[in-house]
């Protein structure tokens, strides 16, 4: 039962990733693409989390790194957009 739910959730996350890609490709602005990429990373982290097992030592570092990259990446691009538009 639990395995089935986990599988369903993973499929949902996979579909979500494909849907988010639509926004990354369509844009139209850079901010829209970054929203899509940020979400893609969070969905990836969600997928990693569903494989979670207490003895799995890699899980925590991977979760931290992925969410940190999503956060830092979004902020860097946001700064870039402001810099580009005020130059």
């Amino acid at each position: 039962m639990i395995e089935t739910v986990i599988l369903v959730v993973q499929v949902a996350l996979g579909i979500g990733g494909l849907v988010a890609l639509v926004r990354v490709i369509r844009g139209p602005s850079l901010a829209d693409r970054i929203i899509g990429l940020d979400l893609l990373l969070l969905l990836l982290a969600g997928g990693v989390a569903t494989t979670g097992h207490p003895e799995e030592d890699l899980l925590v570092p991977v979760l931290i790194v992925v969410t940190l990259i999503a956060f830092a990446g979004t902020i860097i691009v946001a700064r870039f957009i402001e810099w580009r538009d005020t130059e």
Binding site: L13, V19, G46
Partner: peptide
């Protein structure tokens, strides 16, 4: 959590 994640993806589209 899975449902919300999927809704977020649909929402941004």
């Amino acid at each position: 959590g899975g449902a919300l994640s999927l809704l977020a993806a649909i929402g941004i589209v």
